[in-house]
């Protein structure tokens, strides 16, 4: 991505939100960082993008962004999906910050549904867009109840749910948004990332911030904090695996998307993290690059 040189949107503050609102959000962020995994309520604002399309992540990003930051935005692992493009443009327009597709260059990465394959480092911030922040929601629809359950660390229903999966299906039937225990205290939803990404959250050097705009909650995992996927001793947590490698770059260690290529059941598997895939292909010897495309 080229550095953005166009002027920012006239009539609006840097990164859209006014400074008071940013301060309010930063207070909620501080609280969230101080209590890892705790869902801090915040006065979420209406944003010019629809609820459910990343307003929580956008508000978090808007309130932490400075003029020298470099922003990367991904959706489903890809930089070029329409909503990622739209959010990246929003910040290019309202904050004039430099944007990038390279993980290593970015200081702030806003994501929906994936963690980049390339490990993050110190002083990077990963901002997750969260649709439903409450891990107990589908067992208990009432917020008044779930807040109490968190306060009392009453997570029995969650363990029962996982146990019932095993009793019924022989395994834990959670493929994404797989619940985790943060810092040994709060059960937390990692947002709808595939469980493949869960191990990356554990003791990640980067700061992880989670914004749920419509539900008006912010939570966080500070750097190097323990994040444990819930499981049982005899049924340990395991991640998805494929027998294929990426058809484009040959990676055997990345999350693969299945792409239907004809109407006769033909399909191929490719990296969901497009930047990872590109950089691997760029590193391939000449001649080998075109294979698979």
């Amino acid at each position: 991505m080229n550095p953005v040189t166009e002027p920012t949107l006239p009539g609006y503050n840097f990164a859209y939100l006014d400074e008071q609102t940013k301060r309010m959000i930063r207070r909620a962020l501080l609280k969230a960082v101080a209590i890892p995994g705790y869902q801090a309520p915040f006065g979420s604002r209406e944003m010019p993008l629809p609820y459910g399309w990343g307003t929580g992540g956008i508000q978090v990003t808007a309130s932490i962004l400075g003029p020298n930051d470099v922003l990367k935005v991904i959706d489903q692992g890809a930089d070029d999906t329409t909503n990622a493009v739209s959010i990246r443009r929003f910040f290019a327009r309202t904050a004039g910050v430099r944007t990038t597709e390279k993980v290593a260059e970015a200081t702030v990465i806003q994501t929906r549904h994936r963690i980049p394959e390339q490990p993050l480092r110190d002083h990077q911030i990963l901002v997750y867009q969260v649709p439903i922040p409450e891990p107990l929601r589908f067992m208990e629809p009432r917020e008044t109840e779930t807040r109490k359950m968190h306060a009392l660390q009453e997570y029995g229903v969650m363990h029962v749910k996982l146990y019932e999966d095993i009793a019924r299906y022989g395994r834990i039937a959670h493929a994404y948004d797989y619940p985790v225990l943060v810092n040994g205290r709060y059960v937390m939803k990692p947002s709808p990332i595939p469980k493949f990404d869960n191990p990356k959250m554990d003791r990640m050097p980067a700061l992880q911030l989670f914004g749920a705009g419509r539900e008006k909650r912010i939570y966080a995992v500070p750097p190097y904090t323990s994040v444990k996927s819930l499981d049982f001793e005899d049924y340990p947590f395991e991640i998805q695996r494929w027998n294929q490698c990426c058809a484009l770059c040959g990676a055997a260690d990345s999350f693969l998307d299945e792409v239907v290529i004809d109407d006769r059941g033909g399909r191929m598997f490719v990296c969901s993290d497009t930047e990872y895939c590109h950089s691997r292909r760029a590193a391939l010897p000449r001649g080998a690059r075109e294979s698979g495309s």
């Binding site: 489903q76 493929a175 693969l256 998307d257």
Partner: peptide, 11 residues
């Protein structure tokens, strides 16, 4: 919005 990562996981 695209949900193909979660959909893949569910598949």
């Amino acid at each position: 919005l695209p949900h193909y990562v979660d959909f893949q996981a569910e598949l």
